[in-house]
Design a binder for these strands. Sequence first.
DNA 1: ACAAAAGATACTAATATGGTATCATTATCT
DNA 2: AGATAATGATACCATATTAGTATCTTTTGT
Lengths: 130, 130
Amino acid sequence: MKLITRNTDYALRSICYIARSKNIVTVDELVKQLGVPRPFIRKILQQLNKKRVLDSFKGQGGGFKLRTPPGKIYIIDIMRIFQGQVVLNTCFFKKDVCPNKNRCALRKKLRLIEENALKQLKQITIASLI
Amino acid sequence: MKLITRNTDYALRSICYIARSKNIVTVDELVKQLGVPRPFIRKILQQLNKKRVLDSFKGQGGGFKLRTPPGKIYIIDIMRIFQGQVVLNTCFFKKDVCPNKNRCALRKKLRLIEENALKQLKQITIASLI
DNA sequence: ACAAAAGATACTAATATGGTATCATTATCT
DNA sequence: AGATAATGATACCATATTAGTATCTTTTGT
Ligand code: FES
Ligand code: FES
């Protein structure tokens, strides 16, 4: 039960770095800073661009910068990009949606725990990490 | 980010069923009740026996029963059996243990969330599910 | 034109999870 | 004692997810 995966982790680190550095940041710079495989982090940054977290500039002097201020980037959103819908607690009972789900004591408990975790995750911004 | 996996889920269901039924319960009965692949649930029950959650009896009339009362079986322990150490939030920064871990803002936040979830999980017993 | 950047996309590798198969052991019943 | 009904142990296979690579295209500044 990992809260965040490697993807997300690197993404967050990259975003934090970019947030701190006022200038535009290249992949090369991030590779040096984070010591992460170049093609891997490239893919991550591309995804962040597609999802409109970062803005990208091609060509010489190009690179990435934030599209919104760090105080408005929530890590839950980054998690969603790389991990899909966060905190879902599936029922394995029957193939389809379990008809029992609302009465099921286990789900009820788990749901509470998840809601709680979600609530906390939703409050963390990049700004609060740097 | 699944809170519990299929293994754990089936284990919990099995334990709940066994807890409700006063008699000794066979794999066959569980298969019928839960509609889960027989060899799969066998393995699960064997593990539960090894970890001393269930007690097992071989031979005719054999099967499984609880080793402790349902109020003393915590689901966090079942999770640990099937999912290993629950709620660990790894740092991916450098290969080894990150020297920065205690100062790292992200880890600090995640740790809080995890501690919270753990605290809640630790309170759920089988008794509270049946 | 050329070089330095990112974009797009498809592929491979490693790990974790989910599931099977097979044979050995033990206990009960007749 | 032997047959049968149960679990124990163990090794294997399948699938999904995560992690990582490779290659080629596009854009832009000089
Ligand atoms: S049995 Fe389906 S949610 Fe619990
Ligand atoms: S950088 Fe290692 S814990 Fe945050």
